[in-house]
Simulated scan of single mutants.
Amino acid sequence: MKPLRALWVILCHWPLGLGLVATVGLVYGGLYLWLIGDLGGGGTGGLHAVFPAWERVWETRGPFHFEPVGLIEAGPLVWTFSPINSLLAWGLGMLLGTNLTLGWRLRRASRACGWQASGSSFLSSLPALLAGGACCAPLALIWLGLPLAGALASLTPWLIPLAALLLLASLAYLTKVLASSVS
């Protein structure tokens, strides 16, 4: 319970940290949606939204890749909206942002008060960066057309749940370290 309280204190009483979590979550989520093809250019301008296929919300195109239920045009952007893909993208983005924010906060706290505990350096958020890249890196390689993409294509279905588990484990570790540094 103490680690959750420390996490709550950091995120609610430190506006910069909350802003960093939100920014990383939005950027990562947008990049993820762009790489899987749900977000792209080609809009005609203006704002237009239509959602004709809500019955397809649970249909999959592949592992952890769901069919869109609507189309949103906003200026030059076109978003084939899939609520599950969006939830996955921004959920992973928020986990990544929280991990990076806590790693940064622990780094600043250890430097400010001379406290040096194991895992207090910015390297403690390295698992967050690796796990965050696990989702987008193979998609980026495929998008770039690099030969290594073929080898990673068979691993891609496993990388999203693995990334989520690594991000949750890293978050648990960082909140535990944070809770011990606060008390």
Rank of each mutant, 00 (worst) to 15 (best):
A74G: 08
P63Q: 07
P3W: 07
L102S: 02
P147F: 01
T23I: 12
G133C: 01
A131C: 13
G150T: 09
L162P: 00
G41V: 13
W104K: 00
G132C: 05
T101Q: 03
S124M: 04
T23R: 12
L47I: 11
P68E: 10
L159Q: 04
L77H: 05
V78K: 08
G119I: 03
S120M: 15
G119W: 05
V27Y: 14
A172D: 06
T60R: 14
H48T: 14
L31V: 13
L129N: 06
P63K: 06
G119P: 05
L92F: 05
F81A: 14
R105Y: 01
M1A: 15
T98F: 04
Y32T: 10
E73W: 10
P138N: 09
G40A: 08
P15G: 01
L26K: 07
I84M: 07
H65M: 11
V24A: 02
A179F: 05
A140M: 11
E55D: 12
A117T: 03
W14H: 14
H13F: 15
S170F: 05
H13V: 03
S121G: 14
G97F: 07
P76S: 06
G30E: 07
R5H: 12
W54T: 10
L141K: 08
M94L: 10
Q116R: 15
P68G: 04
L162M: 14
H13E: 09
T44S: 15
G29F: 01
L71G: 00
I142E: 13
L178G: 02
G145S: 00
G46E: 06
W34N: 02
Y28H: 08
I72V: 15
Y28D: 02
L146P: 00
L148N: 06
A163Q: 01
S180R: 13
S125M: 11
F122T: 10
L178I: 04
L152A: 02
L148E: 10
W79S: 06
Q116A: 08
P147H: 03
I142P: 00
W8D: 15
E67K: 14
A53K: 10
R56K: 12
C113W: 11
G150E: 12
G91I: 02
V9S: 09
M1K: 14
L126Y: 01
L7R: 07
C135A: 14
G150Y: 09
L171G: 13
R111I: 00
Y28P: 11
S154W: 09
L96Q: 08
G103Q: 01
I142W: 14
G19H: 10
L20H: 10
